[in-house]
Simulated assay, not measured.
Amino acid sequence: MQLPDDPETPLQINIVPMIDVVFAVLAFFILSSLFLTRNEGLPVALPGAETAEAQAQRQVVVTLNAAGELFVGSQSVGDGQLLEAIQTLGTLADGGLVVIRADQSVSHGRVVEVMDRLRSLPGVQLAIATEGNQP
């Protein structure tokens, strides 16, 4: 008994699943790199400074927007609640840093008033955020 000859189909490499995997990995890295950027908090127009330096230690960000409103992180606080809001974060126990991000249109007196309140915290270090001038 003779079996019919099966015509051999030529071998093919299907690369469509490989392309799908490559695009999925690419999308993962693109999306994950978006979350690696540092979120500084609320958008304010910071003044420029040629000698601006990046701070690497743990920090609390206090923001003063153009209207003079006060924020700790992204939470709105009143003047009387500023110290309580920072103390509840608990990051200043071992010499943490408070970064003041004040809009350039906020009066100097308002910034000094906030700094004066913050200096009443024991062991606090203050910094003022600026935009570094890019060459």
Rank of each mutant, 00 (worst) to 15 (best):
A45K: 14
A49S: 15
M18T: 13
L42W: 00
P47E: 08
L34W: 07
Q57G: 13
V60H: 06
I30S: 05
N39D: 13
S33P: 00
A52W: 09
G48L: 08
Q59W: 00
A27K: 02
Q55R: 12
F35I: 11
R58P: 10
G48H: 03
F29Y: 13
I30N: 02
A52L: 06
V60K: 05
I30W: 06
Q57T: 09
R58W: 00
I15R: 14
N39I: 01
V21E: 12
A49Y: 08
L26T: 09
A52K: 09
E40S: 00
L36N: 05
L34R: 05
F29N: 09
V25E: 11
F35E: 12
M18E: 10
M18Q: 12
G48D: 10
A52E: 08
I19R: 09
A52T: 15
V44Q: 09
V61A: 06
T51A: 15
T37G: 04
R38K: 07
G41L: 02
T37F: 04
R58S: 07
L31A: 14
S33W: 11
E53F: 01
I30T: 09
A56Y: 11
L46Y: 09
G41A: 00
P43M: 04
M18L: 14
L46N: 06
L46K: 07
L42G: 01
T37V: 07
M18D: 10
M18A: 11
A24Q: 00
F35A: 11
E53N: 03
T51C: 02
L31M: 10
R58D: 11
V44H: 12
A56V: 08
A52Y: 07
A24C: 02
A27R: 04
I19W: 06
F29P: 04
P17L: 02
I19G: 04
A49R: 14
R38Y: 03
V60T: 14
N39K: 03
T37K: 08
I19M: 12
V25N: 08
A24F: 03
L31F: 15
V16R: 11
L34S: 05
F35W: 13
T51L: 13
E53I: 04
I30Y: 06
R38H: 04
T37R: 09
A49I: 01
I30V: 15
G48K: 12
F23D: 07
L42F: 01
V16W: 07
V44N: 07
F23H: 04
L42C: 00
T37I: 02
I15F: 15
E40L: 08
L31R: 03
Q59K: 15
G41Y: 06
V44T: 08
L42K: 03
N39H: 02
A49G: 06
D20G: 14
A27G: 03
M18Y: 13
A45Q: 14
T37P: 00
A54E: 12
F29D: 02
P17S: 07
A54G: 03
R58Q: 06
P47K: 06
A54F: 11
V22W: 10
M18C: 04
